[in-house]
Amino acid sequence: MSAEASAPDLRAALRDRYGERVRLSESFGELTAEVAPELWPDLAAFARDRLGMTFFDWLTGVDEPPDRIAVVAHVYDIAGRRRLLLRTAVDRGAPRLATLTGVYRGADWHERETYEMFGVVFDGHPDLRPLLLPDGFEGYPLRKDFVLAARVAKPWPGAKEPGESGRATARRRRPLPPGVPPDWGTPEG
Results as ranks from 00 to 15, higher is better:
S25Q: 04
G124T: 06
V72F: 03
P182I: 10
L133A: 01
R151G: 13
V72N: 11
A12L: 03
V71R: 09
P141C: 02
L43V: 10
G179D: 13
D77T: 06
R48Y: 14
L24F: 13
W40L: 06
L100I: 06
S6G: 11
A98C: 07
L24Y: 06
A107F: 03
K144T: 12
V90E: 00
A36E: 11
D67I: 12
E188K: 14
T32D: 00
F56M: 04
D57K: 05
A79S: 13
G163P: 00
A107C: 01
G93Y: 03
P130K: 10
S165W: 14
R167T: 13
D9M: 12
R96L: 08
Y18A: 11
R171S: 10
F137H: 14
I69M: 13
A153P: 04
P141D: 03
R81H: 11
V72E: 07
P8A: 07
E111H: 07
F118R: 05
S25T: 12
Y115D: 08
L39T: 15
V62R: 10
L128A: 04
G80W: 03
F28D: 09
P126W: 00
D183F: 05
T101R: 09
P130F: 08
D135A: 12
L24V: 10
M1W: 07
R92S: 05
D127W: 01
A168T: 10
G19V: 05
W109R: 08
R151S: 08
R48E: 14
D135Y: 00
R173F: 00
S165E: 15
V75E: 09
Y115G: 02
G80Y: 02
R21W: 03
R172N: 14
V72C: 11
V62E: 08
V152F: 00
K144L: 14
W40K: 05
E111G: 06
Y18N: 04
A89T: 15
Y140S: 02
R129W: 02
R143C: 03
A3N: 08
V75C: 13
R15V: 15
G139T: 05
F146I: 09
G106S: 02
L59I: 11
P162N: 06
M53E: 04
A45S: 10
V180I: 03
V147K: 08
L128I: 02
Y76F: 15
A12V: 13
A36D: 07
F55E: 06
D57Y: 12
G163K: 05
L84I: 00
W156F: 12
A5V: 14
L128V: 02
V103E: 00
H125Y: 04
D135S: 07
A73C: 12
D16M: 03
A5F: 09
T114L: 00
A79P: 10
A47I: 11
T88W: 10
P37L: 00
A79Q: 11
A7F: 01
F137E: 15
R68L: 12
V180P: 00
R87W: 10
R129E: 01
F28A: 15
G136L: 01
A44M: 09
F55Q: 08
K154I: 13
L10S: 08
P177L: 03
T60F: 09
